[in-house]
């Protein structure tokens, strides 16, 4: 696994543009197409929204993103926070067939993380939530 870039900042909305820019620049530097980039950006943003809103519950904390390339050429991202334990894989998928009146407001963000990446892994290690997102360069499932 080759580390391409690491960015660590306070987990606040003000830092959102810089975090997103760093990920997008890194993905582009690997020749990832604009279509695949959409999925990477969307999954990253949805993960950051969760961290900003829930991880630190009003207290200060940081978020770290490590972009990597694995031996098979896949684009891999670790999104790390030190907040409350949260395994987003434990969240049930929303009912995407429900009508307007029945649809709950929200619940799509985590679903997008799963649908727009090829693999999602979660682990809790050393007091940190580590979310690993993998995108196969030639196969972004959400954008087929």
């Amino acid at each position: 696994m080759q580390i391409l870039c690491t960015i660590k900042m306070p987990a606040t909305r003000e830092n959102f543009p810089a975090l997103m820019q760093a990920v997008a620049d890194c993905a582009r530097s690997q020749g990832i197409s604009s279509e695949k980039l959409y999925g990477i950006e969307l999954a990253t943003e949805e993960a950051l929204v969760n961290i900003f809103n829930y991880a630190y519950q009003g207290a200060h904390g940081e978020v770290e993103i490590v972009c990597m390339r694995d031996d098979g050429g896949k684009f891999v991202m670790d999104i790390i926070d030190s907040g409350a334990p949260f395994d987003l894989l434990s969240v049930k998928d929303p009912d995407v067939t429900a009508g307007i009146a029945e649809r709950p407001i929200g619940g799509l963000g985590i679903y997008f993380i799963k649908k727009f990446t090829d693999d999602v892994c979660y682990r809790r290690e050393g007091g940190k939530n580590i979310l690993r997102l993998t995108v196969v360069a030639g196969n972004n499932p959400g954008l087929r």
Partner: peptide, 12 residues
């Protein structure tokens, strides 16, 4: 580009 927050605004 649109994310889940945008869809939430539309649904609301």
């Amino acid at each position: 580009y649109i994310n889940s927050i945008g869809l939430r605004v539309i649904l609301t």
